[in-house]
Simulated scan of single mutants.
Amino acid sequence: MIGGPALAGDALTAFFARDAEEVARSLLGCRFMVGMVGGLIVETEAYFPDDAASHSFRGPSKRNAAMFGEPGNVYVYHIYGMHWCVNFVCRPGSAVLIRALEPEQGIAEMAERRKLDALPALCSGPGKLCQALGIDLTLNDRKLDCPPYALFKGAAPVATMVGPRIGITKNADAPMRFGVAGSRYLSKPFPKTSVSIP
């Protein structure tokens, strides 16, 4: 069920101590677990310190402090006063937003938290994903090899779609959204103009 080996210690740091775009692509096909609940990462977005859409653009603050932590750190934040979002820190000030997950384990618990049974809709967006996995601010600013978190490498590279990010107004055209080609668990379909990478 879990697939590849867990990323921990030096291996976890090395995986994330890279350019956020590279990490965002590499995360597709990895398995993200929070306790006994989780699944396959199918959609990500990359953000950088010099990116006007990034929370790190204006430098460190109390809210984004975790984003300036070590590679492999977790940054959780609140949006619209109702949704949590989870990001994995790469180089300091850069991070990858986890946008969608293919549920694989703890599906009944996810469904109870989300109050629905439609499998493709359980984790098809960053807020939905956090609700399904039980992620909130209490799980902010800790490493991905620190329970309840665990991240497992994917078994093989996946065909990837690349397109503009969603739900932002600044630097919105940057092609920094990545998704598993053909997945029915994405938050939204990729535009027809999106690029497919083997």
Rank of each mutant, 00 (worst) to 15 (best):
M1C: 06
I2D: 06
D10Q: 13
L12W: 10
F16A: 08
F16G: 03
F16H: 02
E22Q: 15
A24P: 09
A24F: 00
A24N: 01
G29Y: 08
R31S: 05
R31Q: 11
M33G: 10
V34A: 12
V34R: 06
V34E: 10
M36T: 15
V37F: 13
I41C: 08
E43Y: 05
E45W: 02
A46Q: 08
A46V: 05
D50T: 07
D51V: 00
D51I: 01
S54K: 00
H55I: 01
H55C: 03
K62M: 10
A65H: 13
F68I: 07
G72Q: 13
G72D: 04
G72W: 09
Y75R: 11
Y75P: 13
V76P: 00
H83A: 09
W84N: 14
N87T: 03
F88L: 15
S94P: 00
S94K: 01
A95V: 06
A100G: 14
A100D: 00
L101K: 10
L101Y: 09
P103G: 06
P103H: 05
Q105K: 09
Q105D: 10
I107V: 15
I107D: 08
I107L: 12
L119D: 03
G125L: 02
G127Y: 02
K128C: 10
G134K: 01
D136G: 12
D136K: 07
L139M: 13
D141M: 09
D141F: 04
P148F: 14
A150S: 15
F152V: 11
K153G: 08
K153Y: 03
G154H: 12
G154Q: 07
V158P: 00
V162W: 04
V162A: 06
P164L: 00
G167Q: 05
T169S: 05
D173L: 03
D173W: 01
V180C: 05
V180G: 01
S183A: 08
R184L: 11
K188A: 13
P189I: 04
F190G: 02
K192N: 14
T193A: 12
V195L: 12
S196A: 13
P198Y: 04
